[in-house]
Each structure stands twice: as structure tokens, then as C-alpha cells.
Design a binder for these strands. Sequence first.
RNA 1: UGCCCGAUGGUGUAAUUGGCAACACGUCUGACUCUGGAUCAGAAGAGCCCAGGUUCGAGCCCUGGUCGGGCAACCA
Length: 571
Amino acid sequence: MSHTTDEPVDSEKRALNFIETIIEEDKLNMKNGGRVHTRFPPEPNGYLHIGHAKSICLNFGMAEKYGGKCNLRFDDTNPEKEETEYVESIMEDVKWLGFQWDKEPYYASDYFDQLYEWAVKLIKKGVAYVDDQPQEMISQQRGTPTRPGTESPFRNRSVDENIDLFARMKNGEFPNGSRVLRARIDMTSPNMHMRDPVMYRILQADHHRTGDKWKIYPMYDFAHGESDFLEGITHSLCTLEFEVHRPLYDWFIDQLIDDKSYRPRQIEFARLNLSYTVMSKRKLLELVKNNIVKGWDDPRMPTIAGLRRRGYTPASIRAFADRIGVAKRDNVIDVGLLEFSVREDLNKISPRVMAVIDPVKVILTNYPDDKLEDIELVNNPEDPESGSRKVPFGRELFIEQDDFMVDPPNKYFRLGPGREVRLKGAYVIRCESFELDEKGAVKTIYCTYDPETKSGSGPKQPKIKGTLHWVEASSAVTAEVRLYDRLFMDEDPAGHKEKDALEFMNPDSLKLLNNCKVEPMLATVKSGDKFQFQRIGYFCVDPDSATNKPVFNRTVSLKDNWAKVSQKEQG
RNA sequence: UGCCCGAUGGUGUAAUUGGCAACACGUCUGACUCUGGAUCAGAAGAGCCCAGGUUCGAGCCCUGGUCGGGCAACCA
């Protein structure tokens, strides 16, 4: 009963998921020679999203865990929707997630010749025929889930006639849509997919790889199982909606291949749903087309490109995929879990910096006018290797508006008239007075500092509850910060029968802050750089940045207990 | 009136394959803290969709329901 080889390296005897259980059984029984070969088979007609990431992690993960291989295969059987642009973005995303496919990417279109040959073989066997009927007629004859279909009048054509017609379809002798090749199975099958499914349609369209070579294209159902077979796939992992297709795939292979020593096995799992977002390509496309977001890589999008721009790390997405598990029941995963996964990773790796996103000026009335001193700050307390840096400190500073209240409640550990607070890494200051502008907003806060309390070296180190982050005014760099929130206000925006998801858009999903003050070092930051803005959250440099004009995307906020406490107090 | 899946704390996933339900996130306490972060310690929360049956014993097996999802593109 011992699993002879390939025990998972990460030890931790975590329970197996149902797919791992199947794979281990298959290996034990030496099915397909005990090999494990999976594949990730996207259609290049859109950008990958977090749901695909689940599938990618699963497919590549199983191959990795069991010492097998995983192919990247583009299911490009519909030339009307597919483009090279998508092929490239998909490859980029898979690599970025940290996976390497076996050899070169595969394409279903590489098999068009083989598929054609196989179709002819099925015709010769008498299990495929050309149907001259229009689409509507075929669809009508298919019946409904509860009513059997009826047979096409062309179903019993001679093999010769079928061969001839199919060849002429291929040669482009017939207009689009005028004829199809169908499998001859069973029009009364309780499984709709077995009711003489279409195998080939006439489509005089240029294909992104085969150009104008083909006038007919195979349907996904006829290409997919065969592609798996041709690549030696052992475990074909896909989402639940293909469960009812499986008998068809098996039927095709059994008709085509007599030697039963090797067969791919399809295993279906439930697709990922994330709360407060939509996951279908169609809906995501709608968001892009209607300019609700700024593109496929808008940081609010659940696309891989969007998450990347938002500041998510590959490791965090892999950890997320790992945590959500795989099963067959419908699920809606709390976005909070995704957020937890980034925080966990970013907490370990991101340098802490000082940034005030909603600044208010503080003047230290007893601090020398022209003096600037260097304050030494630790880069990342979670990572001793990360060292420290110097940040200027002076008489005029910025702190966060939120960190000052004219009339603060008891549990507010920050600044207010007469209150004391520590400036991170620097001194304890005391608020003596403040000044309001015409609108009644706090304009300037006047404080005194206690030179004896300098962080570390000062003789006085009083216990102070509140510590604030700050930025020295004269050296501060002005930055733009983009605060993102969930795109939808409903937990399951696509789950309403009578309402469109777009009715649940969150009007505040993007908040632009143009006058943020950040420490000098951040003037020369690079796109993609990640930081923790002390006490605020994790931020990532957006490609829109320029030297001295950095733009930061908020990846995720820090957990905020004060927000909870203050909310409770308000009732 | 058809066929195929599924049903375990708020969410997701487990249960050595019949022996009184575990883990993660979340929630709540408390400790610690120059990030109200992190970390650490602890707690609450399901009696496993329902009803029968098999069994000494069932979340795991059987039967019948209920509820949820999928299936009727010349899409994938």
C-alpha cells in the first residue's frame, strides 16, 4: 500500500483532494504505464482570470507533485474569435504564475490534418455523415432535454456520398453554414451531446495560425478529446460543465482507436467563484467594452493581468489556489481569502516606507527652523536581512488627516488637542493647538516635540500608545495613489435572474488621490515595485509612473482594527 | 415527465475509507508591539439536507425524498 515514488516534497501529510486520490490510484494500478501528464487548454479568445489560475495551479501542480508533465495547449478551433494577442498574454500569464509547460506550446490547430483524417475514418465506418440541413432544422430535430430528437433525412447517406461531400466541404465548394459533418450516434440519447453532434462546420475564415488553408473547422467536442489523446494526456482536468461531454469524448476515441492500452481520463471539478466579482469572460469583456474599467489589466479586474498590476504576487495566487482546494460542489470563495493570501506574502517581502496619502501639515514649534536630521528606519522588521535607511526629519511634517481629531473619543490612540503621540522612528510630540481653514477643516497642527525622546537614543522613552507615520515636508515627493475597492457591491453580482450584474457596480471602486506625500527615496521607483505604506497598506508602483511623479496602486489595505472599533462605537 | 453532478460550522476544504467531525479564512477574548500591522495564546461556532434501512456502530453503505447546479451554439 506504499506509494513507491514521488511522495510530495512538502511533506505535511495534508489530506488528498479527490483528484489526487484518483491519480494515486491510477499510478498504483499502473494505468497508462503509471504516467501523469496533464494540460492546461485555454481558448485564446480573451485574458486569463483568477479562475483560470485555479486550473493552471491544479494542472501544473498535479504534474509537479507526481513527477509528470503538463502541456500548454491552445484550443484554437474557432478562427472567428481567436487571436495571437491572446496567445501571447496567456503564455505570459502562465509563466508569470511560475509554471513552465512541457516543450513548446501545443495548438489544437496542429492536429487539423489528423482530425480530418479521423473524420474520414468515421465516415468510412458509417458513424459520421454530412447533413445538408440548415442550422435551425438541425437544432429543432435535436429535441429537448426531456424529449428525444428525430433523425436527419440525410442520416443514411451512402459512405461514398458522404466522403465526396465532406471532401468538397473541405475544398470550399459550399458556402458557410450550408452543411456540417455529424457523428452518427443516437438521436434519442438522454444525453443531448450524443444526439448526432456536429463534428465539422464550414467556416471560410482566416485562422490565426493556419491562415486560409482550411474552409472547414472541427468543433471543440471533436477536437478536444483527440488532442488529449495525441499528446498522451493521462488526466484531463476540466470544469464541471464538461461532465456531460465526457461520454462523447470517450465514444470518439473508442471509435478511432482500437488499442485500449492508453486512454486519457477526464476529471471534472467545480470552477472558482469569487465573492463581489464576476468571472465569465463575457461579463469581463462587458466591463472593458463599456469602459467601466480601463482595460483587461485594470487593477480592479480579477484577470491575472489585473491582479499583477494591482500588486498581487505569483506566490500569493498560488497559495490562494492551494487554500481553496478542489471539489465538485458549487462554491463562492470569500475575496477576503485572496486578500489574506497577498497580505501574508507581502508582509514577508515588502519594504516598509513612509507615505501620507491624505496629508495635513504639522509644525513643530520648538524645532529649529533650518534643521534637518536623518532618522534611521528599519526597512522590514519581518526580514532582518533587509537593513535600514535614512529618512529626513524636520520642523514641518505631514501626517495623515485621519490621525488627528479635534474632539477624539477615548479609544482613539492618535493625535488630538493636548495629546501625545510618537512619530515613528523619531520623537514624541504633543499637540498644542490647531488651525482650521474657511471650510472648517483642519489646516495646520501645532505641536511641540521632546528632544529627549528620540527613538532608541533618547534618555526618555515613555510608553506611548499611539505611533504615527509621517513625511518631512520640504523633502517630500508628491505622488498619486489609486485606492481600489471591490467592483461590485453585491456578493454574487452574476447570481440574479432578473438583474444584470452591471446594476451592482460599486461607484467608489476607484478613488484617486493626487496630493500624497511620500518619502524622498520613492521618487525613483520602478513599475512593479512593491511597498508597505506604514500603517496603511500594500502598494505597487503602476506603469503610469514617471520619475518624481510616482503612481501607486493599493494592492490591499492593512488589517484595520481601529476601523472595527470605531464602527462599533458609532453603533 | 429526461439525463448528469452535488449537498459537512459564516466561507472553503478534510475525516486513516463504517468508530461520536479536523484544518484554513473569518469572528470573539487576551498577551506582546515605536505599524490599532505582524506574532503568540485561547474561545465560540456544524452534530454532517430530510426520512427510512443495513450495522454493535454511518457524515461515510442502501432506498426514497428535498434543495442547488449543469445539459437543447454550425461557442469553448
